[in-house]
């Protein structure tokens, strides 16, 4: 275990951000490095399984490793340990404070140390797990400013979907933006759902990471065949959002990552008090449903689903 950063908390506790470094059996000194990071949001746990499984597979086949693998399972350890999305006591979203600063408040300092540590990696994979409300198909989200460099890398990662979105100012304070900005290619993976582990998705992404490492010359072991990703660009207006038209309880009637025709039944928002259906939700387009609400209680406006508009066979 390597300490990436540490600070003393007020009462007899040291906060440590830890990483595990795995190196080849016979290092040459010229190895590329891949950084696998997760746990920025304390309620996103899908990355925990990926860190474990990647560690396990590499350590079972150490002779196949030709690069350096740095695994950071918990960028926000206080959040993970207290089921808190942000940084406890600071009311801050950790993914809005990068690149941080050395002399800033604790959160800024930690952000700074994290960026300094990852800087220079051939690739960084920042694994997120949606939130507690939405189930996401394994996908990589790319800011259009970095699409030329990142889309080819993302295609190696065995994700179902690559979403190239327009630049948003608020996203400039994310870890991925900060690293890409200083020339460390960083892919943001969104997959699964908050507070849970979806093992099949985890295995899929570990396959993808090993495949990418193989493509980058960092892994010589066997890799499972990876899927072909669907790539969507914002300018195609391909992603349709369905938001709840009223508060209620969402009962899904379709499956995640299912194909839909325009008008197909997605689910109902119901009122348990009266037994009424408040909103019968149908698909606004032909396409494939890649985000589906997992948490039943909705406010008006709560996101129910995202559908990638497609009229061809998938």
């Amino acid at each position: 275990m390597i300490k990436v950063a540490s600070v003393n908390l007020p009462i007899d506790e040291e906060l440590v951000i830890k990483k595990e470094r795995i190196v080849p059996l016979n290092p040459t000194g010229n190895e590329k490095r891949i950084s696998i990071v997760t746990g920025t949001h304390g309620d996103e746990l899908e990355g925990q399984y990926i860190c474990y499984e990647l560690n396990r597979r590499i350590k079972n086949n150490p002779e196949c490793l030709k690069g350096i693998v740095d695994i950071y399972p918990a960028l926000n350890p206080l959040g993970i340990d207290s089921i808190t999305r942000g940084i406890p006591a600071f009311d801050l979203d950790m993914n809005r404070i990068f690149p941080g600063s050395e002399n800033g408040i604790m959160a800024d300092y930690l952000a700074h140390k994290i960026v300094e540590d990852i800087k220079g990696s051939a690739l960084c994979v920042d694994i997120h797990a949606s939130n507690i409300f939405l189930m996401e198909i394994p996908q990589i989200r790319i800011n259009e400013l970095t699409k030329d460099e990142l889309v080819p890398l993302a295609k190696m990662m065995n994700v179902n979907f690559i979403w190239v979105h327009s630049a948003a100012t608020v996203l400039e304070s994310t870890l991925a933006y900060s690293l890409n900005d200083i020339g460390t290619p960083t892919l943001v993976v969104e997959m699964g759902v908050g507070m849970r582990i979806t093992k099949s998705y985890g295995n899929q992404l570990v396959d993808g990471i090993l495949n990418t490492m193989k493509e980058l010359g960092m892994w010589t072991g066997e890799v499972n065949k990876v899927c072909e990703s669907i790539v969507s660009y914002d300018e195609d207006f391909e992603v349709n959002f369905i938001n709840a038209s009223s508060a209620g309880v969402f009962i899904p009637a379709t499956k995640h990552w299912g194909k839909l025709k325009k008008g197909d039944y997605v689910g109902d928002i119901v009122d348990p008090l009266t037994g009424e259906i408040l909103d019968k939700i149908t698909s606004p387009c032909d396409g494939i449903l890649f985000t589906l609400r997992e948490y039943p209680i909705c406010d008006e406006g709560s996101l129910i689903a995202r559908i990638l508009e497609r009229d061809d066979e998938i």
Partner: peptide, 8 residues
């Protein structure tokens, strides 16, 4: 009342 290192 409780403060963290570098807190303003």
């Amino acid at each position: 009342q409780l403060v963290y290192t570098n807190q303003i």
